[in-house]
Design a protein around this nucleic acid. Sequence first.
DNA 1: GTATTTTTTGCTGTTTTTTGCATTTAATAT
DNA 2: ATATTAAATGCAAAAAACAGCAAAAAATAC
Lengths: 249, 249
Amino acid sequence: MLKEERQQTILSEVELHNRILLTDIADSLDVSIDTVRRDVKELDADKKLRKVHGGAISLGFTTNSARNQNIYALDQKIIIAKKAASMLKDGAVIFLDGGTTCLELARLIPEKIELTCFTISLPVAMELSSKSNVTVISIGGQIAKEAQISIGANAIHNLSEIRVDFSFIGTGYVDAIYGLTEFDWDIVQIKKAVIKASKKTVLLSISEKLNSQHRYKTCDINTINTMITELDPDNQLLSAFKHHDIKIL
Amino acid sequence: MLKEERQQTILSEVELHNRILLTDIADSLDVSIDTVRRDVKELDADKKLRKVHGGAISLGFTTNSARNQNIYALDQKIIIAKKAASMLKDGAVIFLDGGTTCLELARLIPEKIELTCFTISLPVAMELSSKSNVTVISIGGQIAKEAQISIGANAIHNLSEIRVDFSFIGTGYVDAIYGLTEFDWDIVQIKKAVIKASKKTVLLSISEKLNSQHRYKTCDINTINTMITELDPDNQLLSAFKHHDIKIL
DNA sequence: GTATTTTTTGCTGTTTTTTGCATTTAATAT
DNA sequence: ATATTAAATGCAAAAAACAGCAAAAAATAC
């Protein structure tokens, strides 16, 4: 690999993630840390990025508004994603659901944690593919157009052959009594398969969805091991869930 | 070989692959490294490319790989995609490979043709999911980060369980004698599985890739049933392929 | 046609650049 | 404070660039 090419890669990684670790780059480019250090030093001298202890950060760190599309309740979802990210342990094997909250989580996965991540979501897989520390495995199947996730018998079968440490899932509706419910039958089947394939299931949901239900049931609320909302765990709105054996973050 | 001719070759190689190594060029053109060095030096002085230590880089090469929006030779790829789209029949079951040419084909699939489309490519699957007339099935597997396609044993296994009418594939390099070759071993394995899963295989390749080889072989040229380039089928450059049992579009 | 000049090309030895490793020094975390 | 991690430094091997030279090829002159 050419030196110039390598530096370009480093630069685009920095632009993409706003910050990088030298060790990550060295690993993903398969060169020594010294080489990366020297590259970053040069790029810093050329004012292409800013070198910091252990890594580098993008110059235009503030003006990264391009990505901020119109995701509903993005701020809340980022809060949730950050809480969820704090649960990630090095070497873990996890599953990520579709939906904008899980997509935020994918974006916020720390660069220093090695993960193996299964997903049924095309956007999540795309996002994760830019992370050198994450091994991404896409679950194939028929694509549900709206949600851009794999569904159907094939996806369910594929899920039946794995077992992950944690799955992070979203839901259409959640209620302390009725549990997790969905508008869509196919989605329910997939989520059931996901839960079955997980040692622990983590529900990510904005507080607006609390105390709502719909026609098809995914699972009882007890099936969920951890529930994450944007609220403080002591918030009154969550009290109904505290009677169950659910950890609230 | 004429000097002009050689420099033209170097230039198109750079454009095609974004970067070249001087040693590779010297090897493939069968001239000394010094000659290539001098050529590249001249081309650099003429601002046709950028010379770097050990090789040269295309001027339009800014961001590394997958995420750069300006697709090289887009016009030619659109011509190819249009020709390929004309092969599509209502009710067909097809496979689409990764790569920018196949992505163009995905974009150009007519709205009035009902299709079932398998793919290993995340961007292709995303693109197709916006088309109401196409049933999309994603082939799961480990995601190759650069190419954003599913690779590995799981993907190959999944492919072994399907059989499509047509597969549209790209290739890194193609030659009338050496057949289809790639830079990457994993990619070769996947492509082999794709070909096996297809009744007919259609190769999409811009003409610049003709008469080029690399280290790992995907298949003989005879394996391909139809070959589509941006050129007129009668073009001289394609004559070497006419001796084989290949339909040229 | 031949002779001469110019250009091109490949080779040789030398210099420079790049890279990885080991060691020391500095910074950060616990 | 101590342990851990990153940075700086010097060094050596490998690769690439460079300069100069001579043979070959092409262009030009005679």
